[in-house]
Design a protein around this nucleic acid. Structure first.
Lengths: 229, 229
DNA sequence: ACACTAATGACACCGGATGCAGAAAGGAAG
DNA sequence: CTTCCTTTCTGCATCCGGTGTCATTAGTGT
């Protein structure tokens, strides 16, 4: 289970291309002509391989945009596992997610294009749920360990889903502002999550400093008794 | 904008079926044979219409599972808009989401089957992102009004994404337990979100009363890391 | 009977994806 | 060089979801 490193000499017919090259060609075509408008035949043609061969490298057109995401997920998993227990859960989560999404300055432009495709092309975004699930699983596992519950329990799943939502929202915001930096956005997003989005309402507690009468009960929780049926 | 009610007498060839009937037939076939295994031809055949006609009722196979979700979203939007400003934002959100997902006791079984399909079939879950986006937009709009920012700003999008995540997690949990009730799960999920998931860690502030020596991890978590790659 | 209208249905077509049966490109052994 | 073996590539047939087009059908109203 660990004899990968270099089988010395290769046997059989040598590969005509590589995952990396296909990814490069695909991203290039997608960003210029559009994702839906680019057919597999065009990508295969540009790479000098047949349509059928393309599918031996990537099982679907969508997978082209995500590199080997699973490998990166392992990174995230290890980083979370290595976080000392003294760091509070949400703080650890924030730190890990921010670090996970940190990209080398030279690759920022590429990352932007990639994420613009993923979050901007509806069908691509839809298909990405598989990857997102993998991401969430890593988070849920970490939270599960922290709270002493199986990762499938409600709370871990909750945090995982919410954290993913924050990450996507932060990314979307990042993509909308050409000059923005991703890191502070992600950091802010998870930080907000950890506070329960408190203190933002224009009319309520945020303004107590002005001596307002907060009036009608905060936390009213009115609609509760109705959970009849 | 309100001339829908009954054009008195119908003109032209009468429809051969209805959205409701197709939805019924589709759900039936999906739950028995499986979603992927059921072809459009089978559904159309069972409904006594042609393949082409099916696509005039529903633009895709996936849409069959979601009824006219947009109509329901209007309900949610109105409910949120009608909430008095005295109710705190997250409380209002919680109440609205819970109420939105309340289903008549007679339809619980159907709702379960529908949601089991949506959340259980990968391709269906993936395609549902469109619907989820609509749902999030309603939430973001409400939050935007509450915090006095455009609904496209980071915070509203953040809350919307996180809330959606909570709802999905709650639904998933609900589906995993045959006898569970959806409402308290949803309520708990959004309530947790509003507190930032605080006070759950076994090793930290939650357990100070017990004075344990946390050290050698309870819940060793050993069995977890085994799923390596 | 005739026009009008709305829905259906048959057909062709596209593009993504899969299964299968070889062909092609190399190294290794004779 | 020839043969064998291994691995990858390719062409072909097929399936399925989805769309555009156009004739056909089943009704209503005159």
């Amino acid at each position: 289970m660990a004899n990968d490193p270099a089988p010395a000499v290769r046997m059989g017919r040598p590969p005509a291309t590589s995952h990396d090259e296909l990814e490069r060609i695909g991203l290039e075509l997608f960003t210029t002509r559009g994702f839906e408008e680019t057919t597999i035949d065009e990508i295969a043609g540009a790479a000098g391989i047949s349509r059928r061969t393309f599918f031996r490298y990537y099982t679907s057109k969508n997978d082209l945009v995500w590199g080997d995401f699973d490998a990166e997920l392992s990174r995230l998993r290890e980083r979370l596992a290595a976080t000392p227990p003294s760091v509070p859960m949400m703080a650890a989560l924030r730190e890990a997610v921010v670090a996970f999404n940190r990209v080398d300055a030279a690759h920022v432009a590429l990352h932007r294009r990639r994420m613009a495709l993923i979050l901007g092309v509806p069908s691509l975004f839809a298909h990405s749920t598989l990857r997102f699930t993998g991401w969430r699983d890593v988070i849920a596992e970490f939270v599960g360990v922290r709270v002493g519950r199986p990762s499938t329990a409600l709370l871990p799943q909750l945090v995982a889903h919410a954290a993913l939502g924050c990450a996507i929202a932060a990314y979307t915001d990042w993509l909308q502002h050409e000059d923005a930096a991703l890191e502070p956005l992600l950091d802010e997003a998870i930080a907000e999550l950890a506070t329960g989005f408190a203190g933002h309402e224009t009319s309520a507690e945020d303004e107590v400093s002005a001596g307002h009468d907060v009036s009608a009960g905060r936390e009213v929780s009115a609609g509760h008794g109705a959970d009849a049926s």
